[in-house]
């Protein structure tokens, strides 16, 4: 019973941000914001970001920041989309080709990481340029799907995909040996190695799993209709869109699995963006407000230990004074 109450309390902690945002925008728009279509649109827009965030989180949990996510998604989306059209294999072909390409790219990245021992940030930045260039060689015009191949981005398919990916993430991180090994390496690689874990193997597996998430992200991306090729780190905005949600999810999800906090974090950011547009704020103010909210929340998250320490010190001082 007590465990259940704790879980509900933790869940409420996660949900407090979107609920607060809803309340603020409901007041600002005289209730017009509480509209099922607005909420469903924000939720639909957060699907791709959520899936990419979960993929990034798998790497980040092991202390690896992967900047090649956006580029691998564009590569997978452009090549996968065009191959699916060329073979006439429709949506199943699209899923297949996106998966093959996305997993392949991340497997290469994992292999290179283990082979050269280059920091993940450096390696991923280098590979970003390669991944951006590859689809331009084969399909310089990018990829535009016919409308009958874009149904995965629509309700209910997109929500089904998001739920499947969140559940998969939850199972991987909570109920598999690999998930526990990844957590152990992320917390203390030296102890993990001492305990006999094959760090290279676990890291390679984490890249492969990240590739699966990026592949599905690419699938959702191209299912929006079209993907243009980019150059010179032009893929960064695709990934950066997810970064804020990822950090927000990390902040919100201290006591719950990221499979819950990350979607809520990404959804909150989308809700904020939609709300500020509907309220009629100009772009500069929107950016300032989004940045400020994020900064306040992340600063609070980073310093929660400090706040607890100050509280404990005060308690200790109080007790000391009482004894004196």
């Amino acid at each position: 019973m007590k465990k259940g109450m704790v879980y509900i309390k933790n869940l409420m902690e996660v949900l407090i941000l979107p609920i607060a945002l809803l309340a603020v925008f409901a007041v600002a728009t005289n209730g017009a914001f509480i509209n099922s279509r607005i909420l469903m649109t924000a939720l639909r827009q957060s699907v791709m970001g959520t899936i990419v965030c979960l993929g990034l989180t798998l790497n980040l949990n092991m202390g690896m920041m992967n900047f090649a996510g956006g580029a691998s998604m564009i590569c997978g989306a452009v090549i996968g989309g065009n191959l699916a059209m060329a073979t006439g294999s429709g949506v199943p072909g699209l899923i297949f080709f996106c998966l093959i390409i996305g997993v392949g790219l991340m497997t290469i990245q994992g292999g290179l990481y283990n082979a050269f021992r280059v920091p993940c940030v450096v390696l991923s930045l280098g590979l970003t340029m390669v991944y951006e260039a590859v689809p331009r060689i084969f399909y310089p015009e990018g990829c535009t799907l016919p409308i009958d191949m874009t149904k995965l981005a629509l309700s209910p398919y997109c929500f089904i995909i998001m739920i499947v990916m969140c559940v998969a993430f939850y199972i991987i991180t909570e109920y598999t040996v690999l998930g526990h090994n990844m957590k152990a390496i992320g917390e203390n690689p030296a102890i993990a190695m001492g305990a006999g874990l094959n760090i290279d193997k676990v890291k390679l597996m984490s890249f492969i799993l990240t590739g699966v998430f990026f592949s599905i992200g690419a699938l959702m991306y191209v299912s929006k209709g079209s993907v243009d090729n980019v150059a010179a780190m032009g893929s960064m905005p695709v990934q950066m869109e997810s970064f804020t949600g990822m950090f927000l999810g990390k902040f919100l999800g201290k006591n719950v699995n990221k499979a819950i906090s990350v979607p809520v974090g990404v959804f909150s950011m989308k809700l904020l963006a939609s709300g500020l547009t509907i309220v009629g704020l100009n772009s500069n103010m929107q950016t300032i407000i989004q940045g400020t909210i994020l900064l306040v929340l992340l600063s609070y998250a980073a310093n929660t230990g400090l706040i607890d320490k100050i509280k404990a010190d005060r308690e200790f001082a109080k007790m000391a004074r009482a004894r004196a």
Partner: peptide, 21 residues
């Protein structure tokens, strides 16, 4: 009714307009 500014997320803007207005 609304002025949405973004770096390329115009399709999302259309969806937001459709839902809110």
């Amino acid at each position: 009714l609304a002025d949405n500014q973004s770096r390329g997320q115009y399709a999302d803007a259309v969806a937001t307009f459709a839902s809110a207005f």
